[in-house]
Design a protein around this nucleic acid. Sequence first.
DNA 1: CGGCCGATGGGTAACGTTTTCCATCGGTGG
DNA 2: CCACCGATGGAAAACGTTACCCATCGGCCG
Lengths: 345, 345
Amino acid sequence: MEPPASPRRVTIVDVARHAQVSTTAVSKVLRNAYGASPEMRAKVRRAIEELGYRPLAAARGLRGRTYTIGVMLPDIRNPFFPEILDGVTGCLADTDYQVLLGPGCNGEKEEARVTEAMIDRGMDGLVLVAPVSPRARLEHVASVVPTVVIGRHSHSPKYDSVADDDVAGAALVVGHLAALGHRRIAHIEHHETDPTRIAEMPNAQRADGYRQAMRDLGLHEGIDVVSTSYTQQGGYEGAKELLARRPRPTAIFAGADIVAMGVLEAVSEAGLSVPGDLSVAGYDNTTFAALGQISLTSVDQAGREIGRNAARLLLERIEDRGKTSVQVKLSPTLVARRTTARPAG
Amino acid sequence: MEPPASPRRVTIVDVARHAQVSTTAVSKVLRNAYGASPEMRAKVRRAIEELGYRPLAAARGLRGRTYTIGVMLPDIRNPFFPEILDGVTGCLADTDYQVLLGPGCNGEKEEARVTEAMIDRGMDGLVLVAPVSPRARLEHVASVVPTVVIGRHSHSPKYDSVADDDVAGAALVVGHLAALGHRRIAHIEHHETDPTRIAEMPNAQRADGYRQAMRDLGLHEGIDVVSTSYTQQGGYEGAKELLARRPRPTAIFAGADIVAMGVLEAVSEAGLSVPGDLSVAGYDNTTFAALGQISLTSVDQAGREIGRNAARLLLERIEDRGKTSVQVKLSPTLVARRTTARPAG
DNA sequence: CGGCCGATGGGTAACGTTTTCCATCGGTGG
DNA sequence: CCACCGATGGAAAACGTTACCCATCGGCCG
């Protein structure tokens, strides 16, 4: 009575038979390959339509491509990453490629597992967003499959990279606060331990950019950096420490929005008001920052633009694996909101 | 000088040769299949280790499984979904299965594209989180590949479903507000148009639960529902409308946290204070809600538990595609925070 | 008119696994 | 001692697609 559970998938053979041509011909049409006349293409396309044929990626992957791009995000929770993803998918929407994401992975081990899994699944290209793995690991991945790395300030000949200019971003914040009249501007950074990564990571760049901007503005004496981590907890602890200073800083530049959230919590707990007693700025311009209740001054990284560039570079590299690597550096912009104002007094 | 770009991947044949056995034997070991002695297993495993062999999922998929589970999330931005994802990956961590995510897809068309893509890629099972596609579509997917649906209150014989008891969740909120002394408790719902979906969608259930709870508590006259959408904008507009009522409601139950964010914005714009002039509650207990600056009373859906259940059911269904379908309904809990209090006067 | 060439179409061997057999072998019950 | 049996191992045929190469066929050039 019931139709059989799995009515066997339509294959390229079915299409070929239905269109009265060879499987080779169908394959050529599928790939827009050379060697098929317009009439043939039309005939085959009709047959594909009529039969509802869809090529099986696994089978394609065995010989050619899987038409799949893998994107590795370090943390799904970070509201900055969806922007990047939108840029990537947007750029790939008109192509035959399909984007698949790895599950959030924090830590080298998880990263390795996910990248391996993607390679095993024959992905045609990988986009690694803010990976924490050492550079050698990234280069190994890139030697196996076309790869674009987002958010690392590295210049590898093996892969392309796209990143924001974090030094400039930090300078924007410092400049903004200084223009408001702040002198004692403190910074909360993410503590980096691994020496092989230290120069490449955005957090290090932001801290460097902060120091440099302070010096450039003649605020050398106001430099004050606390090392915790890019988490809400890290922001809370960092702020606790900074609020105990005498004299107290009049502004805190948190290295990430989530850090700023922790700062705001500590500040409110201390009975101080923002921006009356203290200005606070974040980084990433996440959804949090834009919320009316928070309205956090932050740095916007143009995530969509980053994603778009990454996708474009990846497609180019898939077409020509030997091409010389490219580094794209984009300029962030400042979004001033209600957590920053002139210092009191 | 340089090693060749792609030093050919290690295949099962290499392993077989290295271990001096047949490829069949290696395959058996890989799949823990019957017909291999302990010594043989040890020998093969050693060879795998020494050669760093990893099976190619694409090739496996052609005959057997790809050991890949696809998870479709409707919107990466919604901070509730990562919880579910954690539950799924956690449950699958000890297995050979790898989770891959579809990119955020809002709308039926995108959903169809992503599910098709996953099927084409030979995924062994699918987890669909809060899909908006009509039921017939879901059943079609489920007939092709083992599927678990999260967040739809449907009872299909073709797929398992896991959902929260949204009626109970709404009752928790109403009960909480009523216990605080509120009588005029308004609700902002997501407007559902499609009649085939209406009973299944969580938003409809929440609205129903709200009405029912109000009646049960004798607050029939206080029932007031505004239909907008589950977005910040929807919350903003809905609140505008509700704040214009005379008498004004003393509490607003937003159908989702993101809606509550819009409500808070409108309330603050109107010069009213929360919870002094108005209590506000959300739903989903997202990261937003927990932020100290927001501290929104919300309903926690135990996302991790949902994900865990979904993964478990999916594994069972992969093992036995014919098994009768199961519906799991979990109980939400209320998280009272600082946006709800006794009404003034 | 013969040879060559570009355009078109197809035959067939991969690709790396799993699956379905079949063979062997030592032991065991009759 | 023979037939049978469970345990073990392997040969070979799938799986659905693409890549490589060859065949054919007009037309065109010399």
